[in-house]
């Protein structure tokens, strides 16, 4: 597990991270979200022991990163931002080097190397120099390096950055597969990732935690939580539908977005209104192509609390 207490990092004039405290337990996948420059990477670097906190502590599996750095680092698999590696080495050579630093030997070393090369589909490029690889492959080499020693705790800084949709899917599947027994922290600014892999999300802005909740809980903070989106058969019914919806007492507002004949009715105080809208459509003879209940929009929550 990972525990941080009042983690703070100051540079000469700015405070990059301030009083960040959280705890992640095995089985949890924590999404670490925030705009660029919010302090995500600085926080992860402090957890990984690359930079020292100005104040506060971080520990991995009970080992304080400053007092027992080697024990803490041994329990951690870390993918640094940008997935750096040694470009002049071959993929197999590089992973072998990491295996040596991780103290893997003999049969265990061979099995683990084969396992991660296979799991991240690096077999076809194993003999190739890392410099010659595409961005997607390099990112996967970085992930392979992080999980090589099968650590109980994983901290991955933007693991899917630069991957194509298929590769993203693969990496998310890998994270989900490992989620059951490991403690995982994933930083990202891709919100769909939160729904895809995270059991919990922390949003950080200007160095502080501004939200710490489940993805569902965060979505419930959205104005769109319990909103109903109607797609009309006939565009000419739009003005009538809009007027009728606005007139409903449970509706706080109506939005039209995009070019399609589509309306979104926002609920007052998040109260459910699907039944009312459905009844209204039948009463007013509004022909519907589809009717959709929204759980909430994460991007909108993200914007409203980080802006």
């Amino acid at each position: 597990m990972i525990k941080t207490e009042r983690l703070t990092r100051r540079y000469e004039s700015i405070t990059a991270v301030e009083n960040v405290s959280f705890e992640v337990k095995p089985g949890e996948v924590l999404g670490f979200l925030g705009p660029n420059g919010a302090g995500k990477t600085t926080t992860m670097r402090m957890i990984a022991g690359f930079i020292a906190p100005s104040e506060g502590t971080a520990s991995i599996c009970g080992h304080d990163i400053e007092r027992e750095p080697l024990a803490a680092k041994a329990a951690l698999g870390y993918l640094p931002e940008g997935a750096p590696s040694y470009g002049e080495m071959s993929v197999r050579g590089f992973l072998g080097f990491i295996a040596d630093l991780r103290g893997l030997e003999g049969a265990a070393r061979r099995t683990r190397l084969e396992r991660v090369i296979d799991r991240l589909a690096l077999g076809s490029v194993a003999a190739q120099t890392i410099d010659t690889l595409s961005k997607g492959f390099r990112r996967r080499v970085g992930i392979a390096q992080a999980i090589l020693h099968d650590p109980p705790v994983l901290v991955l800084d933007e693991p899917t950055d630069g991957l194509d949709p298929n590769q993203k899917h693969e990496v998310r599947a890998l994270i989900n597969e490992m989620a059951a027994e490991k403690t995982i922290v994933v930083s990202t600014h891709i919100l769909e990732e939160v729904d895809a892999v995270c059991t919990r999300a922390i949003i950080i802005a200007r160095g502080r935690i501004v939200a710490d909740d489940t993805p569902q809980g965060l979505a419930a903070r959205s104005r769109y939580h319990n909103a109903v989106t109607l797609r009309l058969e006939r565009a000419e019914q739009m003005p009538a539908a809009r007027a009728a919806l606005t007139a409903l007492p449970q509706v706080a507002g109506v939005e039209v977005d995009g070019q399609l004949p589509k309306l979104t009715a926002l609920p007052r105080d998040g109260a459910p209104l699907l039944a009312e809208v459905n009844a209204l459509a039948a009463r007013e003879h509004i022909a519907l192509q589809s009717l959709e209940l929204e759980a909430g929009r994460l991007d909108e929550v993200f914007r409203s609390i980080t802006a």
């Binding site: 690359f50 680092k73 951690l76 640094p80 931002e81 750096p84 590696s85 040694y86 630093l101 991780r102």
Partner: peptide, 14 residues
Amino acid sequence: KSGAIELLLTQPVT
């Protein structure tokens, strides 16, 4: 420059 220093120093080495 390459950022490899972060990789190296977050391995269990001093």
